[in-house]
Nucleic acid binder design. Structure first.
Length: 661
RNA sequence: GCCCGAGUAGCUCAGUUGGCCAGAGCAGCUGUCUUGUAAACAGCAGGCCGUCGGUUCGAAUCCGACCUCGGGCUCCA
């Protein structure tokens, strides 16, 4: 029998009979490997274990232990999900079902426009486990386009994918544009169109959980019908699934919406309106400290502070272009002196709530002639803006309709731009670190393919300046090709929090458009007028959002410098109250935020309350302390210490605050 | 904006197929207790059952609209 030669990743060669598959290869190496093999990667291309190998190919066997394997498991899990739904809902049809981070989803259309319920997920889960227990094989086959369309006669969305691919357009990875269409068959009844590869059989899939269901537009467009999507998470091992679910629980316990209520930080009164927050006194302390520190650092970094009103006449946003491009995201206008109240003479004036601060800062710039000697000119404002976010997107403090941006606009010459971008980025990252975030990556968004203002040279110059600044930070840089706004490229800073979630924080955006629209200029050393370049820069993004991120990052346990109440002094009995008040006064004299909880309740209960409120320090004072001038220190997350002199505790607290711990 | 779900006391939740006075725990208040490190005891008070309309002899419960919240899609200048 003729043999083929296969190269393995370690460079060694193996001979196998012609027609051997990846599975045969694994079996020829070892029984254990054959059992653990999931797919093979042939000359860089993933394939099914059952696909025949050819002479001279390089093959890597992907096993259950391989980090790449999750993607295949997830994709195969999606097929099982689809089969389960089609089994349970005769007449249902299905659209796309890709693997995604941590799992997969599948989109369906149920007969009669039905939707899924939570109970349905349980039924589907049970059916999926039945399919997995049956250990159905994934069998690949290919058909020419016309036969493929025939096979999917009952599934119009699948045929849309085929047509898209045939027309050379993106089919969302569901099908490629070749001569034939590939399918996978699990049972005589269930076939799904798919590029593959898949695990050899459904028995390999066990560690999944259905998580959510909801509506989703076909191919993500509001123009298309809404399908019903089911999400699953899936992992190679039960341990990974458990770990993931545990992490989800941990994240839920940190949810700033929940902690905001529990810790009495902020609320969203229904009477005020959706997406409009009020900050309670404890949240107010944190917010003020955040803002104060930011102001101090901005002042040191050469920013000048400006202020602007919350509303303005429509003209300003006509000039800026906001009404042309973003009117949908703005609150509707207030009509002042409308025609009916002005005896029909003349049009009324429209005032808008501002969605951005930049036009105001531009007017300040333009209020007089500017010299190159003034540049870079850095204007900073905690500017409150209002955006009419769509009703379905408002979410806690992270997506609101009224927010305060820590907004700065920097006007520079073209020559200064690169240096300025570098120092802004350094400034931003340093400041974020002071707030306790220290794990970042950067994203560079470049010119969008279609609409864009500014010349190619300008884009190139600004983009490379941004890239240079980003690279000099020594951080991971992700390219977001074509993801920039039409008016200029940008860098966004993504921060990973204490449990590894990423949040988009600061953005640094170059703007070619507004200096033009407002005809900004400065007089250069040559006596000629030149156009400045404008950089938009927000560090927190919005104070509200950053507040929410910090709540989640710290799980509500704010470091001493931000904690609303840093210390609570608990007298053991009434007899020790005077001493407790004295200790509190002494600490307060050093600038600490201290309260005393009198002995109306048991000590244990007062400790419990203070712990629930996540105070950095609880001090207990009794007879011994009164006698010796000491305190008992019960630090958050630490061991109780007795007989600590008040002065040394005060020093410790001061050190915490100074070190932002 | 679209699809699904939910709104009962400050918070977390019970409230059977529509049937008198709507319940609990925690929090709050008042007493008693005076305590050395995560829940002392007793009592009191607290709700137009999200809002408006409808069905009904009768609505927290059924129907509709609206508001708000949660999940998903789209969006996030």
């Amino acid at each position: 029998m003729p043999e083929i030669a296969i190269t393995l990743p370690d460079g060694s060669e193996r001979s196998l009979p012609e027609g051997s598959t990846g599975g045969d290869l694994a079996a020829s190496i070892g029984r254990r490997l054959a059992k653990d093999a999931v797919v093979v990667v042939v000359d860089g291309e993933p394939r099914d274990l059952a696909a025949p190998l050819a002479d001279g190919e390089s093959v890597r066997i992907v096993t259950i232990k391989d980090p790449d394997v999750a993607e295949y498991l997830r994709h195969s899990t999606a097929h099982v999900l689809a089969q389960a739904v089609l089994n349970l809902w005769p007449g249902a049809t299905f659209a796309g079902g890709p693997a995604i981070e941590n799992g997969c989803y599948y989109d369906f259309e149920l007969p009669g426009g039905a939707t899924f319920t939570d109970e349905d997920l349980e039924r589907i889960d049970a059916e999926m486990r039945r399919i997995i227990a049956a250990d159905q094989p994934f069998e690949r086959f290919e058909l020419p386009l016309d036969e493929a369309r025939e096979l999917m006669a009952d599934h119009p969305y699948k045929r849309v994918f085929m047509d898209l691919a045939a027309a050379g357009e993106s089919a969302d990875g569901e099908v490629s544009g070749g001569e034939t269409i590939s399918f996978y068959r699990n049972t005589p009844e269930f076939v799904d169109m798919c590029l593959g590869p898949h695990v050899p059989s459904t028995g390999r899939l066990a560690n999944f959980r259905l998580t959510r269901h909801g509506g989703a537009y076909f191919r993500g467009s509001e123009q298309n019908p809404m399908l019903q999507r089911i999400y699953a998470v899936a992992f190679p091992t039960a341990g990974e699934l458990e770990a993931f679910l545990h992490q989800q629980e941990e994240a839920a316990a940190r949810d700033h919406r929940r902690l905001g209520v529990e810790l009495d930080l902020f609320s969203f009164p229904e009477e005020v309106g959706s997406g409009l927050a009020v900050f309670h006194p404890k949240g107010g302390i944190i917010r003020r400290l955040m803002e104060d520190y930011s102001r101090k650092r901005h002042e040191e970094a050469g920013y000048e502070f400006v202020y602007s009103p919350h509303i303005t006449k429509a003209d300003l946003f006509e000039t800026s272009g906001h009404l042309q491009w973003f009117a949908e995201g703005m609150f509707p206008p207030m009509e002042i002196d409308a025609p009916e109240s002005a005896d029909g003479e003349g049009a009324g004036t429209s005032y808008y709530l501002k969605p951005m601060n930049c036009p105001f800062h531009i007017l300040i710039y333009r209020s007089r002639m500017r010299s190159y000697r003034e540049l870079p000119l850095r204007m900073f404002e905690f500017g409150t803006v209002y955006r009419y976010e769509k009703s379905g997107v408002v979410h806690g403090l992270t997506r609101v309709r009224g927010m305060t941006q820590d907004d700065a606009h920097i006007f520079t010459t073209k020559e200064q731009m690169a240096d300025e971008l570098g120092s802004i980025l350094t400034f931003v990252l340093d400041l974020l670190r002071d707030y306790g975030l220290d794990d970042f990556y950067l994203e560079l968004s470049t010119r969008p393919p279609e609409k864009a203002v500014g010349s190619d040279e300008e884009w190139e110059e600004a983009t490379s300046a941004l890239r240079g600044a980003a690279e000099s930070m020594g951080l991971e840089l992700v390219l977001d090709e074509g993801g920039g706004a039409f008016y200029g490229p940008k860098i966004s800073v993504q921060a990973r929090d204490a449990i590894g979630r990423t949040w988009q924080m600061s953005t640094i955006q170059v703007d070619f458009q507004l200096p033009q629209r407002f005809d900004l200029n400065y007089v250069g050393a040559d006596g000629e007028r030149h156009r400045p370049i404008m950089i938009h820069r927000a560090l927190f993004g919005s104070v509200e959002r950053f507040f929410g991120v910090l709540v989640e990052h710290y799980a509500g346990a704010f470091p001493a410098w931000l904690a609303p109440e840093q210390v609570r002094v608990l007298p053991v009995a009434d007899a020790h109250l005077d001493y407790a008040l004295q200790v509190a006064a002494q600490l307060r004299g050093g600038g600490a935020r201290v309260d005393v909880a009198p002995a109306d309740e048991t000590l244990g209960n007062r400790i419990r309350r203070a712990k629930g409120e996540k105070l950095p320090y609880v001090l207990v004072v009794g007879d011994d302390d009164v006698a010796r001038g000491t305190v008992g220190v019960n630090p958050r997350g630490g061991e109780v210490e007795r007989d600590v002199p008040v002065a040394s505790f005060a020093e410790r607290l001061a050190a915490d605050v100074a070190g932002r711990h």
